[in-house]
Amino acid sequence: MSSLISGIKGTTQSLTALRRPWRDFFDISTVDLPSSTSDATTRIAQNLTHFRLNYTLILLLILFLSLIYHPLSLLTFLVILLAWFFLYFARDREEPVVIFGFFIDDRIVIAALFGLTVAGLVLTGVWVNVLVALAVGVGFVILHAGLRSTDDLVMDDLESPYGNVLSGGDDELDSPRGDYSGI
Score class of each variant (00 low, 15 high):
L72P: 01
I110G: 01
V128D: 08
D24C: 04
L61V: 10
I142H: 07
G146D: 12
D174L: 13
V31F: 15
G10A: 10
Y162H: 14
I110L: 13
T41M: 08
P96D: 12
S36P: 05
H50E: 03
T37Y: 07
L67I: 05
I62R: 03
G146V: 10
L60E: 07
F140G: 13
W127H: 07
R177D: 07
F26K: 00
I28F: 13
T124S: 06
S66K: 02
L53T: 10
L75D: 00
E95G: 02
V136L: 15
R19S: 14
I8N: 06
T49N: 06
I104Y: 02
Y180A: 11
G10F: 03
A90Q: 14
L81I: 06
L153V: 12
A135T: 14
I5E: 10
L72H: 11
N164V: 11
A17S: 09
S175K: 09
K9R: 12
R23W: 11
S14N: 05
I80N: 08
D39W: 01
I5H: 05
R23C: 09
T117P: 01
L15C: 01
D27A: 07
P176N: 02
V141A: 15
E94S: 15
L147G: 10
W127M: 04
D179R: 12
L81H: 11
F26W: 10
N129T: 01
I80Q: 05
L78G: 04
S73L: 00
F89D: 14
M155E: 11
Y162P: 11
P96M: 11
E172Q: 12
L158D: 13
F25V: 05
S6T: 13
V130F: 06
K9C: 04
V130A: 09
L147R: 08
T11G: 04
V31A: 09
D32M: 09
P96L: 09
L18F: 02
F64E: 06
W22R: 04
L158Q: 11
R19Y: 06
V79M: 10
V122W: 09
A90P: 10
G115F: 06
V141I: 15
L113S: 04
S14V: 00
T117F: 00
D156Q: 09
A40R: 11
A119W: 08
R52Y: 09
L173H: 12
V109R: 04
V165K: 12
L166F: 10
F85A: 14
G101T: 12
V126I: 10
L113M: 04
I80H: 02
F64L: 12
D151I: 05
K9E: 05
I108R: 06
T124P: 01
F140H: 09
L123T: 11
D92G: 07
A90L: 09
D151Y: 07
L134M: 13
A17Q: 06
F26Y: 09
E172I: 14
A135G: 14
T56I: 05
